[in-house]
Design a protein around this nucleic acid. Structure first.
Lengths: 219, 219
DNA sequence: ATTTATTTTTAGACAAATCTAAATTTATTT
DNA sequence: AAATAAATTTAGATTTGTCTAAAAATAAAT
């Protein structure tokens, strides 16, 4: 079975919003896809007919087994390409998302398998997100939200919760990236901001909003 | 400026049929693109409006300077990806065409330049065709049509004139590929078939049609 | 438990890319 | 040069993905 780029993007968006379990609303999907609710409804009917999801009107949507399989295949391609761009072609980790959005729709199965082998079957992409293997299985990473990290435990930034330009700009300014080692010096309960320290730098504070999208691996 | 896959495919087809100079007919384009003449006419009007080509109804079409630039950029991407697939990912040279047809439409300029650098700025793709550089310049290869090769001169197959499944099947059966060394033993003027000999194999004859799509480099 | 607000769907329209069939232009024959 | 054939274009229809505006269903609030 072959699917259009639009169809694949809907499946991917549902997968991300569904986040393991739960049902996804038309409005949330429209926001995620930068489109309108009416367009989403049309597409849901189409994807239901193709048995990629279960959908009853006004009741939200949820991927079928087939749909999840497709979503995982797309996520796999996206993350493998991101790994390739950063690891092989020396892109910065913050400039690969848009390119991978295009590359993830290249259909050749053989290409994906050969690419995976060439890269050495990586388990995590440059943002720290796990790469599904050819059966759709992903490694689980023992990562923790920065908000939840204990004080004075050294940890390494392993993932960021979004790839928005705004976030990447802020991270660049604060000099935080994947692999950055830091520890928490203080937590302020008033606004839930936290003071962090990166080796050889002065401590500084970051907002709750920022801490919530940073994931770290305890070392 | 950004163009759709369909628009790019039309530009590429015109470029190939134009072959340096001359004007291209609607019917030839329709055949090349596996579409209908009426559809081509519609697209030509659109591409003319975008100033990629000059076109007067009933008079054929020819690429503008802008159009040629776009065509060369697409050809560059196609051939770089083919090189990558064969050289880096270990694809067979006869199984990369379809995948490259998809990859050539990925838009990121930075990706192309980084890929080119990673591959070491190759000058020829796995089929022996020259890869345009970032300014659109291609190396000229001293290759000759097999039909024109002198008798008893050893030569190496450097390019094939088409990537059709039918041709590739025949080449596989005859055990001919890029890099194959051979010499011509006899030319038969009756049907213009030629008898060729590959080292350690018995001589055999190939048809004019086949010889005409094989290009060789004299060693 | 009504009213009000929100979400979602339907209805109808539109642009892109395609097609078939008919009309038009150009090329070829006799 | 008139008749015939071939190539090309136009006209009108179709499919896919999208939209706006109005209607319908569900959720929230008084």
């Amino acid at each position: 079975m072959n699917f259009s780029v639009t169809e694949e993007n809907h499946i991917k968006a549902i997968f991300h919003l569904q986040q393991g379990e739960g049902t996804v609303s038309t409005n949330d999907l429209a926001a995620e896809l930068h489109t309108k609710a009416a367009s989403v409804t049309d597409m849901l009917k189409k994807l239901k007919a193709k048995k990629l999801l279960s959908y009853e009107r006004y009741k939200g949507v949820r991927l079928s087994v087939e749909g999840k399989k497709l979503a995982l295949a797309i996520v796999r391609k996206h993350r493998l390409w991101e790994y390739f761009l950063v690891d092989t072609l020396q892109f910065g980790w913050d400039e690969v998302h848009e390119v991978a959005e295009e590359l993830e729709h290249i259909s050749s199965k053989k290409l994906v398998e050969k690419l995976d082998a060439f890269l050495g079957y990586p388990k995590f992409d440059p943002h720290g997100d796990p790469i599904p293997d050819s059966h759709g299985k992903m490694a689980v990473q023992q990562q923790v939200n920065l908000i939840d990290l204990a004080i004075n435990k050294t940890a390494e930034v392993s993932a960021v919760g979004s790839q928005s330009t705004e976030l990447l700009e802020l991270l660049k300014h604060k000099n935080i990236g994947i692999g950055t080692r830091l520890e928490i010096k203080k937590k302020f309960s008033f606004d839930h901001s936290i003071e962090i320290k990166i080796k050889n730098q002065n401590a500084f504070t970051i907002s709750q909003q920022l801490a919530q999208v940073l994931f770290v691996k305890i070392i």
